[in-house]
């Protein structure tokens, strides 16, 4: 119940500030353009390039959505209300995460119009990779948001929080390049941590349970760290 209360309030304030609207507008414009330009050049009924690039836009956008989650509570001192209420840091973090994830799901749902368009003109559309691609996109979003929530617990400055999560997300993107640099077990180990290599597999229609577990563990780890960071504020 308390988690839902936190989530509800957070969603409310998302739509009170212009941030949510601006992120939505920018994302939809870019994705719309991507859909059109990819279709016009390749003339193929596939959504893979659009979804791949959408993930990149989300990497830019998600720090903007997550940066205020805890930072703002710290800055406006409302954190004192939360931490002196009978509510645990884990519930606060989970509520904040869910609020942002719900917002993210709405954003993703808006792009479902493109496969529907395609289906209208190409009735024998291959739905497999599209469904697995969207599953991948949701898991990827959860991972992005969890990193952002963690970054937001570290500071009361939203810009710093955004920069920390942006930096971390880019790092987890380019880790995959290690396997080209070192063609040995070490390179493979590092690139296993890359969220994008795993996401790319979803786009190709491969629903590997290993990848699903990876995203789940990745998300839970960051949420756990965020909880500890919030607690440590109290004990520092």
């Amino acid at each position: 119940m308390k988690v839902l209360a936190i989530m509800k309030r957070e969603l409310q304030s998302f739509f009170f500030s212009p941030i949510a609207y601006i992120v939505f507008a920018a994302f939809m414009t870019i994705v719309g353009y991507l859909f059109w330009i990819v279709l016009a050049t390749s003339k193929m009924a596939t959504l893979e390039p659009m979804l791949y690039n959408a993930a990149f836009i989300l990497l830019l956008a998600s720090p903007v959505l997550t940066m205020r989650l805890i930072s703002e509570e710290k800055k406006s001192r409302t954190i004192e209300l939360l931490l002196t209420s009978p509510i645990s840091p884990a519930e606060i973090i989970l509520g904040k995460f869910l609020a942002c994830f719900v917002l993210y799901c709405v954003l993703i749902a808006l792009t479902l119009q493109y496969p529907l368009f395609m289906w209208h003109y190409a009735p024998d559309l291959d739905w497999g990779p599209i469904i697995s691609g969207y599953i991948g996109l949701l898991l990827l979003g959860a991972a992005f948001i969890s990193v952002g929530v963690f970054a937001s617990t570290l500071t009361e400055n939203q810009i710093i929080a955004a920069m920390i999560s942006f930096g971390s997300l880019v790092l987890f993107w380019i880790l995959g390049w290690a396997k080209h640099a070192f063609e040995n077990a070490f390179g493979q180990m590092i690139s296993n941590l890359s969220v994008f290599d795993r996401y790319a597999e979803f786009l190709r229609g491969i629903l590997d349970s290993g990848n699903v577990v990876f995203f789940a563990v990745f998300t839970l780890t960051w949420l756990f760290l965020a909880t500890r960071a919030l607690e440590s504020d109290r004990w520092r």
């Binding site: 309030r9 009170f16 406006s76 409302t78």
Partner: peptide, 13 residues
Amino acid sequence: GYLPETPPLYPEM
């Protein structure tokens, strides 16, 4: 019940 020095309010609500 705790009232901190700065009332912990959410200005947009």
